[in-house]
Design a binder for these strands. Structure first.
Lengths: 243, 243
DNA sequence: TAGTGGTCTAGACCACTTC
DNA sequence: AAGTGGTCTAGACCACTAG
């Protein structure tokens, strides 16, 4: 039975949003793991003490947020963002055939440092908080095509700088730590390659490259990661969806 | 009263989608003009002979497609895509402060020509069909920053090539002709400026510029316009939203 | 005060999947 | 045959807007 936040029903938050929050909490807790099925709608609405319509509205919100998948006749499942076909949701780079381009990570450096002022603002860090910084080169058939600089809040990823084998895909890393990515925004520019980027991409210093500055958010709208990537692309491109 | 497409209810299309289609048809017909209010939900569901729940589900779809706006206590309104604040929805370029960057159109050439093979495929043209081609330069305080090449199907925009004062914003042009834009997809690249682009942007030939290749679709998922734009930007950037 | 959209309930039937 | 999510209905009350 769900504890409604107020006896005048609409004062705080619609009931279906309270249900949505309660369900999301149970997903984050790991009570229902990625890929696993939720109880049936009938079980759930009886369990929660709300009507079927209200429960279904809550599930509709979670479906819209891409946190669950509903399959008629089968059940409702926690979306697995680590599944191969789901990976690269926040990577806008596509190869000529339209498939997400990830390549292979060739070189990776990880250290604990102070954030740049831009990172501090973007990640909403307190004074003195540090970031886990990652420098990474991605290659495609030996050819380096991406140089990435990443900053993650040390508070949200404690001990990460000391770990060795953590995953390179942001979705995997977040899911391993019990966070779920909701959305990201990015700025795409033409920029001169920094000396580090030029060296990584085998280009002349200040050679023009495509830069993507990405900021990714949690389901709570909390910033999780900033990435600045420099790309040396040929047939590949950056995909953009407008609505 | 809505003529249901089949007496076994779910054979063709859910009733709420039939209602959605019927309402959209009346918007396209101009029966409810942009900015005008629809009848109240009570009037509508009685008129259409469906339940309130079904009508509201249909309105929810249209709201999600950004075709209507619902205001509690006031009513439901046809979304006006020509309204100043709505303009630039399909323009990903932003100035440093994040506001949509349109600048002023300085030079515009319009002619009726044959499509390129890429345009023919993208716009799904029949053999022999022609396109209205537009070449356009946008300036910001005298500085040319964008060179745009546009192709519109002559069949969907008959007589446009002969008109003088049609609007430069795609949303306005489409709405004037009774079409409603639903979405667009684009490819962003770093490309060498063609001689025409270089000249328009006051750059050396083959100078690296940001190129955006955009394809815009109707509410029926029919392609409406292709645009290839070349940008010479300074603080401005291309905005990207990832979900 | 009347009218609007938003929320919530209870109950029925349907198409599809799985065993 | 049993169980799942999807659709549809009828009716109630609520918060907000506007005359």
């Amino acid at each position: 039975m769900l504890a409604v936040q107020s006896n005048t029903r609409f004062q705080v938050k619609p009931l279906y949003m309270q249900v949505r929050d309660a369900l999301l909490e149970r997903i984050k807790d790991g009570q229902w793991r990625p890929g696993a099925s939720l109880p049936s709608e009938i079980d759930l609405y009886r369990q929660l003490g709300v009507s079927l319509g209200t429960l279904r509205k809550a599930l509709g919100v979670l479906e819209n947020e891409q946190l669950i998948v509903r399959e008629p006749g089968r059940g409702t499942f926690v979306r697995d963002h680590q599944a191969a076909q789901a990976l690269g949701r926040f990577n806008p780079i596509r190869s000529a055939d339209g498939a997400p381009l990830r390549g292979q990570v060739k070189s990776r450096k990880v250290k604990l440092t102070s954030p740049t002022p831009a990172e501090k603002a973007a990640l909403r860090l307190q004074a003195g908080e540090q970031v886990v910084r990652i420098h990474r080169i991605r290659v495609l058939d030996e050819r380096p095509f991406a140089y990435e600089q990443i900053a993650l809040s040390e508070r949200r990823f404690p001990g990460l700088a000391g770990e060795a084998g953590f995953p390179d895909e942001l979705e995997e890393l977040a899911q391993d730590r019990g966070m779920i990515l909701a959305r990201a925004e990015a700025k795409v520019r033409l920029a001169p390659a920094s000396s580090a980027a030029a060296q990584a991409l085998s280009l002349a210093e200040r050679a023009p490259v495509l830069s993507v500055e990405r900021l990714a958010f949690d389901t709570d709208q909390e910033p999780i990661e900033t990435m600045t990537a420099y790309y040396n692309l040929h047939d590949e491109y950056c995909r953009l969806e407008l609505r």
